[in-house]
Structures are given as structure tokens and as C-alpha cells.
């Protein structure tokens, strides 16, 4: 699967506003360290029926 396919499929699952491509992880760590994530996703929590 190439990146474009991957993005298209991800966008089926998650609002595109919550998908970040080549996102620097130093923006998201307390040490302010870290290179890029290919796909950084921040979905909202939607709870459906779960098993006991």
C-alpha cells in the first residue's frame, strides 16, 4: 500500500482533521525530542458496545 492509498483508507476511519502526515514528535513529547511520525492520528473517543 502506498502513502496515498494509506491516507485515503485512514480518512475513511478518521476525520482528516485528525490525521497529520510527517508530524514532528518533538512537538508531542515532554523532552522536546523526536523525529517525524509517518502518520500521527488523534481520533476522538467514540465508545460502542463492549464485552464484559
Amino acid at each position: 500500500m502506498d502513502n496515498n492509498q494509506m491516507i485515503a483508507e485512514l480518512q475513511q476511519l478518521i476525520n482528516p482533521e485528525h490525521i497529520f502526515i510527517d508530524e514532528y514528535l518533538k512537538k508531542h513529547t515532554y523532552t522536546k525530542l523526536g523525529g517525524k511520525a509517518d502518520f500521527f492520528v488523534t481520533p476522538p473517543l467514540i465508545l460502542r458496545k463492549y464485552k464484559k
Partner: peptide
């Protein structure tokens, strides 16, 4: 697939992370 919390107790190397990094910061 990698789970990243709020990044407080983790070190991410300089080359970054391949694939999907999931942040639960909206939970």
C-alpha cells in the same frame, strides 16, 4: 502501530516512528 500517550515518559529517537502513531490526547 505505536501508541503515544502525552509523551511524558517516553523518548522518541531522532529518526522518528514509521507507520501510524496513535495519540489519545482527545480522550
Amino acid at each position: 502501530f505505536t501508541l503515544l500517550g502525552n509523551g511524558s515518559n517516553v523518548i522518541v529517537r531522532d529518526g522518528g516512528i514509521r507507520g501510524i502513531v496513535l495519540s489519545l490526547k482527545r480522550f
